[in-house]
Design a binder for these strands. Sequence first.
RNA 1: GGGAUCUUAGCUCAGCUGGUUCAGAGCACUUGGUUUACACCCAAGGGGUCAUAGGUUCGAAUCCUAUAGGUCCCACCA
Length: 893
Amino acid sequence: MSISTKYDPIEVEDKWYQYWLENNFFHARPNPEKEPYSIVIPPPNVTGELHMGHMLNNTIQDILIRKARMEGKEACWVPGTDHASIATEAKVVRMLREKGIKKSDLSREEFLKYAWEWKEKYGGIILEQLKKLGASCDWERTAFTMDDDYYKAVIRVFVDLFNKGYIYRGLRMINWDCEAQTALSNEEVIHDENGEKSILYSVKYKIKDSDEYVIIATLRPETIMGDTAVAINPKDERHNHLIGKKALVPFINREIPIIGDDYVELDFGSGCLKVTPAHDQNDYEIGLRHSLEVVDTINLDGTLNEKCEIPRYVGKDRFEVRKLIIEDLGKTGLIVKEEESVTKIGRSERTNTVVEPKLSLQWFIKMKEISRKAHAAVMEDEILLYPTKFKNTYNHWMKNVRDWCISRQLWWGQRIPAYYFGKVEEDFVVAETPEDALNLARDKSGNSNLTTDDLQQDPDVLDTWASSWLFPIEVFHAFGDDKFDAQKGKLIKGKNADLDYFYPTDILVTAPEILFFWVAKMIIAGYEYMDEKPFRNVYLTGIVRDKLHRKMSKSLGNSPDPLELIKEYGADGVRTGMLFSSPAGNDLLFDIKLCEQGRKFANKIWNAFRLVKNWKVDENRPSDQNDFALNWFEARFNQALTRLEDHFSKFRMSDGLMTVYKLIWDDYCAWYLEMIKPPFGEPIDKATYDRTIDFQERLMKILHPFMPFLSEEIWQQITNRTTEQALIVSEWPEPKAFDKLLIDTASTAFEVVTNIRNIRNSNNLSPKEALELQILTSSKEVIEKASSAIQKMANLSNLTFVTDKPDNCMHFVLQSGEYFVPITGEIDVESQIEDLKKELEYNMGFLSSIMKKLQNERFVNNAPGKVVEIERKKQSDAEVKIKALEERLAKLI
RNA sequence: GGGAUCUUAGCUCAGCUGGUUCAGAGCACUUGGUUUACACCCAAGGGGUCAUAGGUUCGAAUCCUAUAGGUCCCACCA
């Protein structure tokens, strides 16, 4: 039988994924016999494609869920997708535009039909891609934030929050995207770090009934016609005499008050600020303080309207008007200065157009009250964030939480269930269905003749996060009619087996940039509807960057195609590659070399398996010469497993992988297998073979979460397994107590081996040439225990203990004793002397630093006895070593 | 402007409550190797005043203060 020396992941991976699926290993259901363990996936955008961030995220989740499954928990990983209203709508609009269809030519229903078609076509892609990665999601539970149930849940929650008084409709300064014609949340507005160049104009405003002028500075002259005041800092000696007078707006000569407000900076521009409440957040707030008139001169599409009073400007885009008005102001000599200025102007994340601050009627959630428990939960460690530094960030944000604008002027999403029936702003009702709305409207208006035709539903949809904040609850179909107590506004316990069993989930793995968008909001919803947190732990991954520290993105073109990567390196290789460089919470500098390292690791494991697989067993062969190796590896395995568990408990995935990596590569392959390996062609004894198989099985178990495919393949090849015996559902090993002394003995032995190999290296001695070793030591037992291993690993013909120092030897001194290797060839005495001198010098320096400490009375008196003891031991060890080196040196000279 | 956080080997990072895990790991690098499991490999080796300056202490990579530089979040000057 021959097995390839190269591990080929491609066929193996598809085979096992299919096998796991067919046997339903990913599916979980409430099981009172077992402890639940659940994770909900951060739902990717429904029309998105897998990128490196997803790869990292989902690898981590899969590792956790696989380990939990092996630990005998009922492990449930719920997958799903997010309808992502803005992103998806933008894509659909673009797609339609390419077909020559304008959104504005379509009815809402027609548009949604296209959107759903788009969703059906592309919606599943990303989940299929996750399967290639090995994600062991419970696919039967796949959720979509616009599923019928889910849609209803979101509406139900809106109505409930409205009835509880958390939702209100209000006039607010919002970020308006003139191109997409929608409001944007602050988070969707991008400010370029370096700012953008712009020109700051100084413009003269005449003072009424006077020849004086006031000079204001503005970046946005096109908003001049919306000015309703000029503000001056009352402390400003230069201008404060003007406060109380009136200024005249250029061209239209509107009289506006000159007011005092300390918002105005003394040393920016001219010190006088034109106040345009309709078009600037700060100006709006100044306006509120001084009860200023609001003149809104800009339309939703960014053109100016007739309120600007200048016909030449009406209907033209704000940027065009800027050019025109500068021309006009220039002609009349009103511009006194133009200077270059850099401003951190906001642009829409989606359309990249300059965001227009705009007053608009929007729906809001009052955040202060509703977020209180969510704030406390993190501060009091009811929910743990990894890494913990995000706790501070979270705190800062929650303390200063602002009301959440949840309406979006889009069609793709849950439509706001508010129905208008009259002329006045207050003439609306909020209800889950049009029928309920009609009843409410009849009550509210006192007009029992109202019909559904008199009701107009709000055209806007809800912010995506206002649906995905229910994800950890609603994936379990929580808000059904009989499960929700509308009176209390709570979900009823005991009505939903899945929810009762799996909620709260164990961990959420997501990106730090959506800590507030999504994580905080889920916590809020969790406490509001379940009186319970949605997850115990939050693991925040870093951003995947390239070697130049740039964020990997499609637009930069610096992101490899994940599926291509998987093809080339295998899913196992890519998974480990991602993890090799991924400390929790830090950005990951992705380097394709790491995937290569992952692939090499897979190959290494494969070959170790091949070696063992090909051994012939001889039942009659004695095994005692391997006792040391067997017992040592047993101890070493448990030591590593203990470490691994510790890493897992702190979500240090990268360290966990490295622990397994070193255990397999260094300890198992480089030392253990080499120690027990029979000479070529010879069989191995039964006892050693059996235990090696046992080791290999346990190694595959702890490898499985990281490299599920390779480990399952080897597992199944070691022995024929029944379905129930598949590795994916096998039992995770318990860390046992281990013999630390034995591990120390082994490292002493390995140190000896390394030194002998070193001697070979520096004397050009072939590893095939057997050497002799003579040892002068006071602790013979330690070496004796490991002597057969040392002989084998160092290729010694002979290992003897001596009482006198032999001549003509290569020589080294270790803590454990003095070692002599007679060699036949010429010994380079000069270089030996050189080396000895160096080593001696180092040890003398070491000793003197210790002596300094020990001679310091304050150290001896104050330091704990144990520490002093250690120093004394160091001293005597160093003295012994120095003595040996000196004697040796004397002999050579 | 407010806040957080970081600076340890060429690179990416570990180093928890100050003392044997104290100067570490992986990769990269150098040297040598056709040792029948693996050249996707083996063996050995060289790399660091722990950002800088002070302080606390018997003792500091670890605690404190300041400085410099980086990263992130929030707010934002018209």
